[in-house]
């Protein structure tokens, strides 16, 4: 394995510029609180991989969505396991992203020169919420449907443009097949794509600016 990787890297060259970063001594005063971000990233990978597997069987249509989820849970080999991993990793992801945010906030690690990384992190937090919200509709059962009716209904309370916002979010006046496909697209294409890019930026800035020494 190592030899194959070295052969590739002699041409690709990702190791040499990272050598100093990967082999630097870690600051003395770190605690387990510094692991929260890493845990969140690990969960993100788990959600991403299990989600990519689920997409082989899930059918984003008004008539077939619920049946396809039932099929995944009952018939597909390891279906319940993969779906369970997706669900629980997603829930824990939200939890650990929030804990990570609290740690950075409490230690005031957002101060210069790390303001931009705080902004990137905030976007990732919001995207994690959005992913949870859109993913919740996809099983297309009663709970999912009514949660989305209530959740998207909040858009209508915005003054003046509320109704237009509601139509934009739902793809029509009601939560129906159009909403399902819309949420599906956001959940499986837009959010993973943008989140992955933002995570790259997030880690790039950690690499450039180093770990904050805390208070």
């Amino acid at each position: 394995m190592g030899r194959i990787y070295d052969w590739i890297d002699r041409r690709f060259g990702i190791k040499p510029p990272h050598k100093n970063f990967l082999q630097r001594p870690v600051p003395q005063n770190l605690s387990y609180f510094y692991c929260l971000g890493g845990i969140a990233f690990t969960l993100y990978l788990a959600v991403l991989l299990t989600g990519m597997l689920l997409s082989f069987y899930y059918v984003p249509s008004e008539k077939e969505a619920f049946q396809s989820v039932v099929r995944i849970t009952r018939e597909v080999h390891f279906g319940a396991l993969i779906r369970g991993l997706h669900k629980w990793s997603a829930n824990l992801l939200i939890l650990f992203v929030m804990l990570h945010t609290v740690r950075v906030f409490a230690q005031r690690a957002y101060r210069p020169p790390r303001e931009l990384n705080w902004v990137a992190g905030t976007f990732i937090l919001v995207l994690a919420f959005a992913s949870g919200f859109t993913g919740y509709l996809l099983p297309w059962d009663q709970k999912a449907y009514w949660a989305t009716v209530v959740g998207t209904g909040m858009a209508a309370t915005v003054p003046f443009i509320g109704n237009h916002l509601l139509y934009l979010v739902r793809g029509g006046p009601e939560v129906d097949g159009a909403t399902l496909v819309r949420f599906y697209s956001i959940h499986v294409i837009w959010i993973p794509l943008v989140t992955s890019l933002l995570l790259w930026a997030h880690f790039h800035m950690v690499k450039r600016q180093g770990i904050s020494g805390g208070l």
Partner: peptide
């Protein structure tokens, strides 16, 4: 696990 998941169940 992924290979088993992708293999058709019937």
């Amino acid at each position: 696990t992924a290979a088993g998941f992708l293999y058709p169940s019937e």
